[in-house]
Simulated assay, not measured.
Amino acid sequence: MVDQGGRNKTPKSIFELLEICASNVIESQNADGSFPPGRNYTYNELETPVKTTARWLITFSKVYELTGEEQYRDVALRSIDYFLQEIDRPGGYTFHCRTTPGKDKCNGLVGQSWPILALSYSGRVFDIPSAIDLAIELFSTHPFHEDLGLWERIETDGQRIGFDRTLNHQILFAARSSNLSNQSAEVEEKIDRFIDRLGQNMRLNQEGLIKHFVRPTPKEIVTQFLSNPKYYPLIINEMAYPFRTHSTKRNKIERGYHTVNLAPLSKLYRRHSCQSFWESNKCANAIQYLENNIEGLLNKENTQHGDGLPGISIAKTLYNFDRCDENLVRDMVNEELTRRFSYDKLRFEIGGMHQNDQSSLISELVDLPEVHIY
C-alpha cells in the first residue's frame, strides 16, 4: 500500500505506478461513482464521464487485485454502481459518450467498448454477475452482420445508425468485448467471425500499413446498400478508396493509427488464437511494418492523430504476438514513461489531450506484464 502522498514515492515497477496513480485520484471521484470527464483526443469533443470512469474502474480493479486494499475496492464498486444505475444510459440502449452537434452520442462502437471492457473486467475481479450481464447486454445491443463480419452502431435512443466504418473502432470493440468470450457463446462466435472476415475487411498498402476504413468486396457493399439505403457510407468508402490511397494526409493518419489497430489485434490473438487470419500474409505484413518502423512510430514521425502512447501499444503488440520477451517490453515502457509521463503531475503529457484523459490513460498499463521502472 502507498500512502496518500504517493506522488513523493518513486515507483519501482508499473504495478507500483498504477497504485500511486490510483491513490492520487480517489478524492476526485464524484458522488455518483463517476470520474471527471475529458474530451475526445482527436477532435476535442465534449465527453461524458463514461470513458474516464471506465478507465479508472479498470485501474482500481487491477490495483485491488494486486493489494487487496479495501479503499481501492470501495472506489471500484462505486464506479460499477455508476454504470449499473445507467446514469449516462438514458434510453436503456447505449451509453451517452459525447455531445457534439451533428455526431452520434454513442461515439460509434469505440465509445461503447469502454464500459464493456470495464464491466467485464471488474465484474470478474469482484464477482459481480450483474456487471458482466450488463456488458453482455451492451455487446448484444449492437447488430452484427454475419456475412460482412461487421457491427452496426446503435444510438442512445436505440436507433440503428449504420455500420461503424472505421476499422480501429471495429477492432477495439471486438478486443475489449473479448473478455466476455468465456461467459457468452454469442460473444465468442461473433468475435471469431469478425476475425475470419478481417482477411477481407482489413486492407494494407504495399508496405503493410493498415488502411483506416473497412473495405468489404464491392459486391458485398452493393448488396448491403440495396437491402437498406442507410448503408450508403460503405459506397462512399469504396468510391473514395483510390483517392485516399494516394493521399499524404491519409497516409499520416494511417501511420498514427497503425499501433491503435495492432495492439487490440494482438489481444484478440491471445484470446481467439485458432483463426487462420493469424497465419495470413496480411497479418504478418502488418506486424512487419511495425517492426520496420518502430523508431518512427514511437517518435510520431509523419503521423497525424492516432495513438497517444505508441510505445505502450508497440510493447503489447510484439509481446502478445510472441515477437519479443519481457526485456523489450520493459525497455519500451520505460522509453514511453521517460518521454511522456510526468511523475510530478502523475499523468501522461500528450499535446492536445485533456488532463483528465492524460491521467486516466494509466489504465493502458494494466494488461502489461510486471516490469521494472528505471
Results as ranks from 00 to 15, higher is better:
Thr217Asn: 09
Lys219Ala: 10
Ala286Leu: 07
Leu209Pro: 01
Glu291Gly: 05
Lys190His: 08
Val187Ile: 03
Asn251Cys: 15
Ile171Ser: 05
Leu298Gln: 10
Ser280Thr: 02
Arg165Thr: 14
Arg176Phe: 12
Asn299Pro: 04
Ala174Leu: 06
Arg271Ile: 09
Phe243Met: 10
Leu167Lys: 04
Ile235Cys: 06
Gln304Pro: 08
Asn201Val: 07
His258Pro: 06
Arg215Leu: 12
Lys249Tyr: 14
Asn302Cys: 09
Arg255Asp: 06
Leu265Ala: 06
Arg193Phe: 07
Phe173His: 02
Asn179Thr: 14
Ser227Thr: 09
Leu204Gln: 03
Ser178Met: 05
Phe225Glu: 04
Gly208Thr: 04
Asn292Lys: 09
Gly199Glu: 09
Asp164Tyr: 00
Gln288Ser: 14
Ile287Tyr: 10
Phe243Leu: 11
Arg255Cys: 09
Asp192Ile: 14
Asn292Ile: 02
Asn281Phe: 10
Gln183Glu: 10
Asn237Arg: 04
Ser184Ala: 03
Lys190Ile: 01
Gly208Met: 08
Ile287Asn: 08
Ala284Gln: 08
Val222Cys: 06
Ile236Thr: 12
Glu220Lys: 11
Pro218Phe: 04
Ala175Gly: 02
Gln206Val: 15
Lys219Asn: 11
Asp192Arg: 14
Thr166Trp: 02
Asn168Cys: 14
His212Met: 14
Glu295Ala: 13
Thr166Met: 04
Glu279Tyr: 11
Val214Gln: 04
Glu207Val: 10
Gln170Asp: 07
Ala263Phe: 08
His212Val: 11
Tyr241Trp: 15
Ile236Asn: 09
Leu180Ser: 01
His272Gly: 01
Pro218His: 07
Gly296Arg: 14
Ile191Leu: 02
Ala263Arg: 05
Pro216Asn: 03
Ser280Asp: 01
Arg255Ser: 08
Val214Ala: 06
His258Leu: 09
Lys249Phe: 15
Asn182Ser: 13
Lys267Val: 09
Phe173Ala: 00
Lys219Pro: 01
Asn281Leu: 07
Lys211Val: 12
Asp164Glu: 09
Ser227Trp: 07
Glu207Met: 13
Arg250Gly: 06
Gly296Pro: 06
Lys211Asn: 12
Gly296Tyr: 11
His212Pro: 13
Lys282Trp: 11
Ser280Phe: 05
Thr248Cys: 14
Ala185Met: 13
Leu172Ser: 13
Val214Phe: 07
Asn237Gln: 04
Ser280Trp: 05
Glu238Arg: 07
His246Ile: 15
Arg203Trp: 12
Asn179Ile: 13
Asn293Gly: 01
His169Trp: 01
Arg255His: 13
His246Tyr: 14
Leu268Cys: 03
Pro229Asp: 11
Ser227His: 12
Gly311Cys: 03
Asn299Phe: 15
Lys282Asn: 10
Ser184Thr: 07
Phe225Ala: 07
Gln200Asp: 11
Arg165Phe: 13
Ser247Ile: 10
Lys249Ile: 15
Gly208Ile: 05
Asn292Ala: 10
Asn182Arg: 15
Asn293Thr: 06
Leu298Gly: 03
Glu220Pro: 06
Leu172Thr: 08
Phe213Met: 10
Arg271Asn: 05
Arg215Ile: 01
Ser247Gly: 08
Asn205Thr: 08
Gln288Phe: 05
Gln288Arg: 14
Arg271Lys: 11
Thr223Asp: 08
Ala185Pro: 11
Ser177Thr: 04
Tyr232Ala: 13
Ser184Tyr: 02
Ala240Arg: 12
Asn285Lys: 14
Leu298Arg: 06
Ser184Lys: 03
Ser181Trp: 06
Ser227Gln: 15
Asn228Cys: 10
Leu268Gly: 00
Thr303Met: 02
Asn293Tyr: 05
Ala175Met: 02
